[in-house]
Amino acid sequence: MNTPAYTLDARAADATAPTPHLPGDLAIWIFILAELLAFGVFLVAYAFARSGDVAGFDARQLGLDRDAGAINTVLLLTSSFFVVRATQAVAAGACARASGWLVGAIGCGLGFVVIKVFEYAEKFGAGVTLSSSTFDMFYLSLTFFHFMHVLLGLVILAALWLGTRQRRYGPDNMNGIESGAAYWHMVDLVWLILFPLVYVMR
């Protein structure tokens, strides 16, 4: 039996359309989902703890440095943008250009770390501890949990930078850089909810 012409046309069209594709390694996405779930529970726990003591949480929140939080948001977003540009450079076969973008991404990440360390130093100096109030407990543990992910993300970015220097990635070998990039974007994604929730919402 002859295949109808329209079926052939449909197949030809399918061949040119991009097929659905998960960037990076399947394992990193399972890891990212697990991380998102942990952060999700933590963020929602904060929101419901606040609903039981709105006045107490709002009063303690006034002591946070929103400027530092906003600058850190800009740094993480810019870092993520640089990582996207690095991934695009590798996809275009320009590994040297990619390592330049990764240097920028690592620089922004380090900026986040420096600002956060100053923020913690100020808080500890003001007597903020895990047991000084429920808000402080959430603020310190949530932001520190995220901070640890920023540090791990920076180690991953450094490994990617080394990989681009050694020209280990290319248009046909994107798995490593796509996996590392996805992890770094996850760190950014969590901060995008954490910042308005803990620093601004009242």
């Binding site: 943008f81 990039a181 950014d188 994604l189």
Partner: peptide, 21 residues
């Protein structure tokens, strides 16, 4: 705004726009 920002990170930066549904 945070929801739109998060969606953009997921779809554009994480490049899941063309990932399996």
């Amino acid at each position: 705004l945070a929801y739109i920002k998060g969606s953009l990170i997921i779809l554009e930066f994480m490049a899941l726009r063309r990932a399996p549904l």
